[in-house]
């Protein structure tokens, strides 16, 4: 924008998007902002609003926040009881903790399996690398639900695994409806989200750094610990977040594979909403879940920044 065109009063989009926001650029930024507003901010506000109501039997099944009283006085009624309940009822706290535990263990297992996979794919020669990458992505082409169902075919009492064990005379193992099955399901489903970011960082890793390390007397495992691993931390962080965050709120996998004692917040949420028709509490659970998800993101972001910037000063 040239000097002559700039009016004394700053245009609104300049305020929003900074100086130099010509109309084309503003449009480009406007689209995602609009998208986020319509499909994220508004629904979130709706959910937050409902979470401050209380359950009522009727349609909609929750109390009004705003009521018009006599003489046109508008009264705003906000209930914090749902949040209080979430904090005080051990069920919710336990469910959150259990979700975090399941998500954390799944993330660690996915990392332990995904890292070597990503490493070898990144080190594979060219035609093979693409084939292997394709194999990692391939499961996405089938329905997620179908894949989880197929897993139950492996793990059920008279399923594939127990069939194999039976050949060796081993008694069937109860895998379905256990936490084990949930871990298998989550790790299996989210493994690609771990492998892909790890692959991206590992493939960018400068081979000459590894050679330099070997040249300076580091054995292969020393090179791995002091060079490869620290330099792939951004990939580890990204992959772990991509697994951990959706795993916390996972509903389908524990429902299909887990037992009644597999306590996850996604199921509690579902129960509150569909079995108990308690929208306000379900909304409060959802808002609390969002906080629980956002906090680790911020912590990890900070940790990552520390890794990148650290050691400097």
């Amino acid at each position: 924008m040239s000097q002559s065109e700039t009016p004394l009063r700053t245009r609104w989009y300049t305020k929003l998007f900074g100086p130099g926001a010509a109309s084309g650029r503003a449009l480009v930024i406007f689209a995602p902002v609009a998208w986020l507003t319509v499909f994220f901010v508004v629904p979130l506000a709706v959910v937050f609003g409902i979470s401050l109501a209380i359950k009522e039997f009727g349609r909609p099944p929750y109390s009004d926040l705003l009521t018009v009283g006599e003489g046109g006085t508008v009264q705003l009624t906000l209930h914090l009881s749902n949040y209080l309940r979430i904090i005080t009822d051990p069920l919710y706290v336990t469910a959150y903790l259990s979700s975090i535990r399941i998500a954390a263990i799944s993330t660690i297992v996915a990392l332990l399996i995904g890292y070597p996979m990503a490493y070898f794919i990144a080190r594979a020669r060219d035609p093979w690398r693409n084939v292997l990458l394709m194999l990692v992505i391939l499961p996405f082409w089938t329905s997620f639900l179908l894949r989880v169902y197929a897993l139950s075919g492996f793990m059920r009492g008279n399923g594939v695994i127990n069939g194999l064990l039976g050949i060796f005379g081993i008694e069937p193992i109860q895998m379905m409806q256990t936490d084990f099955a949930v871990y298998v399901g989550i790790v299996y489903t989210y493994l690609p989200f771990m492998v892909l970011p790890l692959f991206t960082t590992l493939v960018k890793l400068d081979v000459s750094l590894l050679e330099a390390s070997a040249d300076l007397g580091a054995k292969p495992w020393q090179t791995f610990w002091s060079i490869t691993l620290p330099l792939s931390l951004p990939g580890i962080a990204a992959g772990s977040m991509l697994v951990f965050i959706p795993a916390i709120g996972e509903f389908v996998i524990p429902s299909l594979l887990g037992g009644p004692s597999t306590l996850m917040i996604g199921r509690v949420l579902w129960d509150e909403f569909f079995s108990n028709t308690n929208w306000p509490r379900a909304s409060a659970v959802a808002v609390a879940m969002l906080l629980i998800v956002v906090v680790p993101i911020m912590l990890m972001q900070r940790a990552q920044d520390a890794v990148v910037e650290g050691r400097t000063r």
Partner: peptide
């Protein structure tokens, strides 16, 4: 057909996220 229960789950699945939950109202 994967048994009727799958159909039910397929429907439930839409309700998975808080966002979808909110949208259910709309």
């Amino acid at each position: 057909p994967f048994a009727p229960s799958l159909l039910t789950f397929a429907k439930d699945f839409e309700m998975k996220t808080p966002l979808a939950l909110a949208l259910a109202g709309l």
